[in-house]
Simulated assay, not measured.
Amino acid sequence: MTQPSDIAYFTEAASVETVNDRVSDMADARLKIVMNSLVRHLHAFVKDVELTQDEWGVAVDFLTRTGQICDGNRQEFILLSDVLGVSMLVDAINNRRPSGATENTVLGPFHVDGVPEYEMGANITQQGGRETCRFEGQVTDLDGTPIKGARIDVWSDSEDGFYDVQQPDIQPRHNNRGVFTTGPDGRYWFDGIKPVSYPIPDDGPVGQMLGHLGRHPYRPAHMHFIVSADGHETVTTHTFVAGDDYLTSDAVFGVKKTLIADFEPVTNGETLWRSRYDFVLTRKEGGAGDAD
């Protein structure tokens, strides 16, 4: 009769080996790698802090309430991932780029499809916006060659710190949103408003957690961009308002130093502010691109 191995029965010392040994060799290879590592790190954490049963009960209750508040319009688990820096870490690992290329940051929950495509120079603000701003710059590759036909999808909050989808009865649909396409010189310019900082939803379990940790829920002011072009890697990013109070304490860790943009006051201009930011795209492996 075959005797069971030493790890067939659970012990504190060999907990990781016992759990991971139960994973079948028939399991998907990548799933096995991920789950083995998850168990290893999770058990190490529990042992490191010597988690009490009461603390584990609090954790289970927190996760339960996090799931219960989720619905078609709100994803509290993504918010949890954001405030723990996991969303940004996953994004960074999957969007490594050479020096000089524009860096990614989180997409955020307020992007929508079907946004109007405007002629270059149009105003994307349909309602409100006293602090008007001209956004401008150029899209190039790493060699500085302008990229023709780059698609620039932009969106921002209102002057009150809300996106149009958060206030469907107050803001017009697609307020502060637009899509533009660059010409042969790769330049873009459009008018909007100077964004303002705003809090992430903090009325749920994640907000309560931030409060217990002594953390605020605010994001620094930013304009969203998705810049794409044939033959090039798509950049999903923000430009952040230089000097914002929350640049070094963004609740979701989305700020990278290279994404901070100057917003300069304009005298006797069409807008009160101007912000220039150039986007540098990397070519897809084996792709020729559409640069002219």
Results as ranks from 00 to 15, higher is better:
residue 209 M to K: 08
residue 200 I to W: 00
residue 168 P to Y: 05
residue 208 Q to S: 14
residue 202 D to W: 04
residue 208 Q to V: 06
residue 202 D to S: 14
residue 188 Y to G: 09
residue 210 L to D: 13
residue 211 G to Q: 15
residue 171 Q to A: 09
residue 187 R to S: 07
residue 175 N to Y: 11
residue 170 I to T: 12
residue 182 T to K: 01
residue 213 L to M: 13
residue 174 H to S: 06
residue 177 R to E: 14
residue 210 L to S: 13
residue 200 I to P: 04
residue 185 D to K: 07
residue 183 G to R: 01
residue 204 G to A: 13
residue 197 S to A: 15
residue 198 Y to W: 12
residue 202 D to M: 06
residue 175 N to E: 11
residue 213 L to C: 10
residue 188 Y to P: 05
residue 181 T to M: 00
residue 209 M to A: 07
residue 187 R to N: 10
residue 198 Y to N: 12
residue 182 T to W: 01
residue 202 D to F: 10
residue 180 F to C: 04
residue 192 G to M: 02
residue 179 V to G: 01
residue 198 Y to K: 10
residue 174 H to D: 11
residue 210 L to A: 10
residue 211 G to N: 13
residue 168 P to N: 08
residue 199 P to K: 04
residue 181 T to W: 00
residue 169 D to E: 08
residue 186 G to W: 02
residue 204 G to F: 07
residue 191 D to M: 10
residue 213 L to F: 07
residue 211 G to F: 00
residue 178 G to I: 00
residue 184 P to G: 02
residue 204 G to L: 11
residue 188 Y to V: 06
residue 184 P to C: 00
residue 202 D to N: 15
residue 172 P to I: 12
residue 187 R to A: 09
residue 206 V to T: 10
residue 166 Q to C: 11
residue 215 R to P: 01
residue 215 R to K: 12
residue 209 M to F: 12
residue 203 D to K: 14
residue 168 P to V: 13
residue 198 Y to S: 11
residue 187 R to H: 06
residue 172 P to F: 15
residue 191 D to R: 04
residue 211 G to L: 09
residue 215 R to L: 12
residue 210 L to E: 11
residue 199 P to I: 12
residue 207 G to C: 09
residue 193 I to Y: 00
residue 213 L to H: 09
residue 179 V to I: 11
residue 188 Y to C: 09
residue 205 P to V: 03
residue 189 W to K: 01
residue 172 P to W: 15
residue 207 G to L: 08
residue 208 Q to N: 14
residue 174 H to K: 06
residue 212 H to P: 00
residue 182 T to M: 01
residue 183 G to V: 00
residue 167 Q to W: 07
residue 175 N to K: 12
residue 215 R to I: 01
residue 193 I to K: 01
residue 183 G to C: 02
residue 181 T to E: 02
residue 176 N to K: 02
residue 206 V to Q: 11
residue 179 V to C: 04
residue 182 T to Q: 03
residue 214 G to I: 11
residue 189 W to S: 03
residue 214 G to H: 13
residue 177 R to W: 02
residue 172 P to M: 15
residue 176 N to I: 03
residue 173 R to D: 05
residue 195 P to E: 13
residue 214 G to T: 13
residue 175 N to C: 14
residue 166 Q to F: 10
residue 171 Q to D: 14
residue 211 G to H: 13
residue 213 L to T: 04
residue 181 T to L: 02
residue 185 D to H: 07
residue 173 R to Y: 01
residue 191 D to W: 02
residue 187 R to G: 02
residue 174 H to W: 09
residue 214 G to N: 10
residue 193 I to G: 00
residue 212 H to F: 05
residue 186 G to Q: 01
residue 196 V to D: 12
residue 179 V to S: 03
residue 170 I to V: 13
residue 192 G to H: 03
residue 172 P to S: 14
residue 215 R to Q: 07
residue 208 Q to T: 09
